[in-house]
């Protein structure tokens, strides 16, 4: 069963269509990345899925509940990290967490234990009773993350979770997200501009533009929707004769051959054709020192999608 379902979900603010016709599912234990420029509809989608905004059309279900009418029940089981840390600066970190835990109905003893555990995990214990106004940006971000996780939500909505964190803290947070999803079975809806982070963390991705989905799938699926075939990088111990290169280009399944001397790049129809390519080269005397199918990075995919003309099919 899908943990989150969106069916034709749409929302406009006046003439601006913030979200239009979103249809996709999120599964248990999945890290689902949502990418797109500012104003693409990421934050509006999070608000619709938490029942704090009502859709104009379409519907959503989160953990089997309709957020438009059962928002309170949905929010009890979700944790949201907003784009800005959104913490109370006149209160201490401990007071911030206690307040949040109370709103989520945590019993006193359980609340205190969880507050202490989160403060220690996010390395805020030393300054837990200081006013948050004196914290650095990274500390506020860690506190906001601690608050989002305090009640152990089944679904996490994270908007730029590593923004403002130093590399060590960012790495720690990424490990935490991976552990929460892949080991603890939590579903993570991750909105980010950090393409490297998304590539490393996300099981599937949706790329949004102007409120609609440009493309959706795994990294490999997204790559396949944009580019045909697979490029294979070949390093040779010694240069091969030109005639061999011409013969290779005529081989069934081979679409293109580039490069020169000891570094070639060959485009084949799919990964299944790579073993035949290698066998043919070896049988014709090639001594290969490296064979590497080229994977498209998320950055390449993202910019290819965003720069495509509007209306291009995902």
């Amino acid at each position: 069963m899908a943990v989150i379902e969106l069916r034709g979900l749409s929302r406009a603010f006046g003439a601006v269509r913030a979200v239009r016709d979103l249809t996709f599912d999120l599964h248990e234990g999945e890290v689902f990345g949502v990418l797109g420029p500012n104003g693409a509809g990421k934050t509006t989608t999070v608000r619709l899925l938490n029942g704090v905004l009502k859709p104009d059309a379409g519907r959503a279900r989160v953990l089997g509940l309709d957020p438009a009418v059962q928002g309170k029940q949905v929010r009890r089981q979700t944790g949201v990290l907003t784009e800005t840390p959104s913490v109370y600066e006149r209160l201490s970190a401990r007071e911030n967490l206690r307040f949040s835990g109370t709103l989520y109905g945590l019993a006193h003893d359980d609340l205190e234990a969880r507050v202490n555990a989160q403060l220690e995990f996010f390395e805020l214990g030393q300054r837990a009773d200081d006013k948050v106004a004196g914290y650095s940006k990274g500390m506020k971000q860690r506190l906001a993350l601690a608050r989002a996780l305090l009640h152990d939500p089944k679904v996490l909505f994270l908007d730029e979770p590593t923004a403002g964190l130093d590399p060590e803290a960012a790495h720690q947070v990424m490990q935490l997200i991976a552990r929460l999803s892949h080991q603890a079975g939590r579903t993570v809806f991750l909105c980010t501009h950090n393409l490297d982070e998304a590539q490393r963390l996300c099981d599937r991705l949706a790329v949004l533009r102007e409120g609609g989905v440009l493309a959706l799938g795994t990294l490999a699926e997204l790559g396949r929707t944009l580019w045909r075939g697979v490029w294979v990088e070949l390093d040779l111990q010694a240069a091969l004769p030109d005639v061999l290169r011409r013969d290779l280009a005529r081989l069934p399944g081979v679409q293109r051959v580039e490069g020169e001397a000891t570094k070639w790049v060959v485009q084949v129809g799919g990964e299944a054709e790579i073993p035949d390519l290698i066998a043919w080269l070896v049988s014709h005397g090639a001594r290969l020192t490296r064979v590497m199918p080229r994977r498209h990075t998320l950055e390449e995919i993202y910019f290819e999608l965003q720069e495509a003309p509007a209306g291009r099919p995902a």
Binding site: R75, R76, V80, S86, Y88, L103, Y104, G105
Partner: peptide, 14 residues
């Protein structure tokens, strides 16, 4: 104005 309203509105309160 202090940008704390959003997290309050996301809380499970009616």
């Amino acid at each position: 104005e202090r940008k704390t309203l959003e997290s309050l509105l996301y809380s499970p309160t009616s």
